[in-house]
């Protein structure tokens, strides 16, 4: 009985990881229409930040907490640099953006190999994250691990913070204005280029946060970003482009479906089921769970 609950929780925690890696993408791809293939490498940068901080900060717990804002800034800065150097010159040419950012992604992977070596590295998990909570005791226990709960909390905090920022702050209003109608926003005096850069900073910074979370579940390596980026794109497409709500629902739905199928069958079958479900869903609703309503004529 409790195995159903355990698996549901596992699914939700897989969904939380998916959500974290998709959140930044939902912003840059969804809001700005930029397909940034180097997004995965920003995740990698966040993960290596934890690794680097674990040297000088001897306590694993401390370095993880310090890594959260640091990784956000590091990945965000990389994003801004990429936007400023390359992407802003290619806004009207999506296919070129795709190829250029893919090239950047390969270069960043090689850079990581040269800086940190080809073998994967790993970080210590702080003591307060290596335990577990027993919700239901007895012979058939339901236990939730601290690391997974932490990732879930981090994902939800990121969603709430991002939603509030978009809804309530002047910057959020400007971002929404640019998304809904770029020309009109520009005509009303919004510096769209600046808004784009800030949006890119936040989106890339969220990738850095995802990288920090991923160090709790797996190794850190040059290709870790590539491994998760497809899943992130899937979440964004299913959720509906430019829709945070959609991304949240899609991430948890895909996570739970994966976990439940994986429990009753095998990893491969679960994977196939999830992909088929996505294809079928997109046939029925090509625009995703939610669509953005705009007055834009383009």
């Amino acid at each position: 009985m409790s195995i159903i609950l355990t698996q549901s929780f596992t699914g939700i925690s897989i969904g939380a990881v998916l959500l974290l890696i998709a959140l930044g993408l939902s912003l840059t791809f969804g809001q700005m229409g930029v397909i940034n293939m180097a997004h995965g490498e920003f995740i990698m940068a966040g993960a290596y930040t934890v690794y680097l901080l674990q040297g000088p900060l001897s306590s694993a717990g401390m370095s993880l907490l310090v890594a959260l804002p640091t990784a956000f800034l590091v990945a965000g800065a990389m994003g801004v640099l990429l936007e400023w150097l390359l992407i802003r010159r290619l806004y009207a040419r999506p296919l070129d953006t795709l190829l250029v950012t893919w090239g950047v992604s390969l270069m960043l992977q090689q850079l990581a190999r040269d800086l940190f070596g080809a073998p994967n590295v790993h970080t210590e998990i702080p003591g307060w994250l290596s335990g577990r909570v027993t919700v239901i005791g007895g012979d058939d226990p339901l236990t939730l691990t601290h690391a997974r709960l932490f990732i879930l909390a981090l994902a939800l905090a990121a969603v709430v913070a991002l939603t509030l920022a978009l809804r309530l702050t002047p910057l959020g209003r400007r971002i929404r204005a640019v998304v809904q109608h770029r020309d009109l926003a520009e005509a009303s005096g919004i510096a769209t280029a600046r808004v784009d850069r800030i949006t890119f900073f936040i989106g890339s910074g969220l990738a850095g946060l995802a990288g920090v979370a991923l160090t709790l579940v797996g190794p850190i390596g040059p290709t870790m970003g590539t491994n998760v980026i497809i899943d992130a794109f899937l979440v964004v497409v299913v959720g509906g482009i430019g829709q945070l709500r959609g991304a949240v629902i899609a991430a948890f739905a895909l996570g739970v479906l994966q976990a439940v199928m994986e429990y009753s069958t095998t990893v491969s079958v679960a994977r196939v089921t999830v992909l088929i479900a996505i294809v079928a869903f997109l046939q029925w609703r090509p625009q995703g769970i939610y669509t953005l309503r705009t007055r834009s004529l383009a």
Binding site: I3, T6, Q7, T10, S13, I14, V17, R148, V217, G218, P219, M224, N227, Q258, A259, E262, Y263, T266, V267, S268, R271
Partner: peptide, 19 residues
């Protein structure tokens, strides 16, 4: 249970092993 080479998501397999 088999996981694809390079897979890093093992929560379910660990649950199955424990159960």
């Amino acid at each position: 249970d088999y996981a694809p080479l390079g897979s890093t998501e093992f929560a379910t397999i660990a649950n199955k092993v424990q159960a």
